[in-house]
Every structure is written in structure tokens, then in C-alpha cells.
Nucleic acid binder design. Structure first.
Length: 191
DNA sequence: CGTTTTTGACCCGCGC
DNA sequence: GCGCGGGTCAAAAACG
């Protein structure tokens, strides 16, 4: 009965009630930014306002409705906009190869994906092997700015703020980058 | 062989 | 009511 669109619609609606949008502006030539999760591309669309196509990714984890959309920054082709939509219904899965987590890649302009929740930020999650992979990503790509939105709102509007790069606001935004897209909270609704 | 990527089509919401 | 833009799904192809 309910078509795929129906299901999608429902999911969309329900998600909207508990959607988290995080927009990352990462300085990278390739959009192949690894964040510790395994994503499967499920769509690509050319935006009207952007000469570059936008890629849609979805977490391969079963039951995980986390999505991610990657597009090249239209004002700065050297940057890529990574927008995380929704939360992962699971922790960092050990799907990534065990890198040498003994490395201290947190330095310089590299943003440490430390938890900024304010409470359990000392969680040993970062000790996970997957975390190492994330470190690598951050080491190879410099996150210029991050916008965190924990509700259904105009994420695009936030992106507009990124235009303030170089005006000084960037630093403020970078501060937000301390917040990782993970560690939010598992959704007891689905799983 | 299994999984992922690719591309087109379809659907929905919004604006005019 | 129609058109546009954006987002998702689905089937086939490519890749490991």
C-alpha cells in the first residue's frame, strides 16, 4: 500500500521532529572526506545555485537513518560543504581499518573532533580505532568552519554565515567545530 | 559474488 | 494550477 514515497515521507516527517543538521565546511580538494562512518552514495543532484553537483550519502549501518550531503563550496571550490542530517543509531562502527591511534594528529588548524557536549566530553570514544580514522581525516583536511543545528531549521541559512570567512567570525564558528556530529544521543525511537 | 557507484526518473513542497 | 528545485529510490554497471 504505502509506496516508497509514502514511507519516505513518513520518515522525513518523523525525522523532522528530531533532526540534527550539522554543516561542515572542510578545506579539501576531494569530497572524499572520511568521518569514521561508512557512507553509501544514493544520489547526486546538480544544484541550480551551484555549478557543482551535490552528492547524497547514507549511513550503511542497518537501522541508521543518518544522512550526509556533500557539495563543493560554490564560493570556494577548494572547500567542500558536508552537511550531516540526522543522527547515527549506533556508535562508531569498527568498519574502518585500525590505524595507529597513537598519533597525535590534533594540532595546528586541524580541528579535534573532541566532544563539546560539555559533560561526557572525556569519553573514551576517541580511543576507539575508528576515532583514529577520523583523526586521519582531520589531519588531511582542515575544517574551516562548522555549523551545528539541533533542530529542523534552514540549514542553508547557516551556510550563509560561512560567507563570513575571513571576517573574523570564522573563529567563532571554528569553536563550534569542537562538537562532533556523533555523541549526540541514540534515538530510542527506531532502535 | 557481493557491494557500491552511477544515472535517470519520480515525488514532494513551495512559489508564482 | 503549474513550474521549479530539491531529495530519494531504483536498476544496471563497475569494482573489489
Amino acid at each position: 500500500m504505502a509506496s516508497v514515497a509514502d514511507t519516505m515521507k513518513m520518515n522525513n516527517k518523523r525525522n523532522k521532529n528530531n533532526l540534527s543538521k550539522i554543516t561542515y565546511l572542510t578545506e579539501s580538494e576531494s569530497e572524499n572526506l572520511e568521518d569514521g562512518y561508512k557512507w553509501r552514495k544514493y544520489g547526486k543532484k546538480s544544484l541550480k545555485k551551484s555549478p557543482f553537483p551535490r552528492s547524497y550519502y547514507r549511513c550503511t549501518a542497518i537501522g541508521c537513518n543518518a544522512k550526509k550531503r556533500v557539495e563543493r563550496y560554490m564560493d570556494d571550490p577548494t572547500h567542500v560543504l558536508t552537511t550531516y542530517v540526522g543522527l547515527h543509531a549506533h556508535d562508531l562502527p569498527p568498519i574502518l581499518p585500525p590505524p595507529s591511534r597513537s598519533f597525535n594528529l590534533y594540532n595546528n588548524s586541524t580541528v579535534s573532533p573532541k566532544l563539546g557536549k560539555g559533560s561526557d566530553e572525556q569519553k573514551p570514544i576517541l580511543s576507539d580505532a575508528s576515532a583514529g580514522a577520523r583523526e586521519r581525516m582531520y589531519a588531511n583536511n582542515t575544517i574551516t568552519s562548522v555549523n551545528v543545528r539541533t533542530d529542523s531549521d534552514s540549514c542553508v541559512n547557516d551556510v550563509g554565515s560561512i560567507e563570513n570567512i575571513g571576517t573574523g567570525l570564522l573563529e567563532d564558528i571554528v569553536n563550534l567545530s569542537s562538537i562532533a556530529p556523533h555523541y549526540q544521543h541514540h534515538q530510542p525511537t527506531s532502535l
